[in-house]
Design a binder for these strands. Structure first.
Lengths: 157, 157
DNA sequence: TTCCCTGCAAAGGATTTGCATACAA
DNA sequence: TTGTATGCAAATCCTTTGCAGGGAA
């Protein structure tokens, strides 16, 4: 059987365009803009990794040499998540939530237990089966969490 | 395409047999037995739900009228998880880990966002595809977490 | 001027740890 | 008797909240 697997594709948008959209969103919600919010957004845009709140503080210091209080970071993360600009995931054996920007098309994660490497993938067959299972049980799916854990090629050597 | 979906099956073993196995395990690890450990085991055996550490304390009081310190419960949960007697899962929007006994064959979860109802299912096609994806990326799978979230039939009315 | 946003520090919840005591073998 | 397990309280880690001051429109 042909397996229709693909890489998740990154939506092509520049940071400037992205920022304009973001500012419009804030206006439409009657919210103020702030340097802090824009820096966090910029960080996630540039560094497309999975970051914890602590790591956001750290990276902001490293990359832009600015300091934002951890409370503010948490508030911004919640806001961005509600707006679906970022999304969160909780990994096995890790205590704190990680966040990543939602620029890519929907995808799931494959993680190496040894080196922690994260591979993103999308598989339409998998998605289709999830829908079938849900249907069979009388559910309408809203979302799903799927993380595969294993050992990557490099670490097996 | 035929979808080979089944219910996860419960392994048929009595609590007495189970307890004997458990005691042997402790001996083989040169560990002492304790009333507390056996009660936690019994609880998970009898009440086949997903429980947090707090809920374990509560249920132990309700069902057996015994009190175990929360620290001990956490220590027992870690131990049982290491021994693969129970397994843990972290649900979306919940802060504390839940544990369930590992008596059933491998299965994943489908959860209603409204009523919190948990449906267990096993789908061999899904498992097969996960293996294929891992292979393609050069991974050897060790395990996976998959939780589907949706709204159940009852709650949609 | 009017809210919203931030930073600090304190509070909160979940989990872990140190230590003295109790218990199993 | 010896080492392990428990219970309590304190500590820790992550996250949230209250509040006073700073900033955006």
């Amino acid at each position: 059987m042909k397996k229709p697997q693909t890489q998740p594709t990154k939506l092509t948008i520049s940071y400037d365009e992205y920022l304009i959209k973001f500012r419009k969103l804030l206006v439409s919600l009657k919210l103020n803009n702030s340097t802090q919010r824009e820096y966090v957004l910029k960080l996630f845009f540039e560094c497309q990794e999975h970051l914890t709140a602590d790591e956001v503080v750290l990276k902001l210091k490293q990359k832009f040499n600015i300091t934002i209080g951890i409370a503010t970071v948490y508030r911004i993360l919640s806001f961005l998540e509600q707006m679906k600009i970022i999304k969160s995931l909780t990994l096995e054996n890790e205590t704190s939530k990680k966040y990543e920007i939602n620029l890519k098309t929907h995808h799931d994660h494959l993680i190496c237990n040894e080196c922690g490497d994260v591979i993103e993938f999308y598989d339409s067959e998998l998605e289709r089966i999830q829908e079938l299972i849900a249907q069979e049980k009388g559910f309408v799916l809203t979302n799903h969490h799927m993380i595969l854990y294993g050992i990557c090629e490099k670490c097996r050597r």
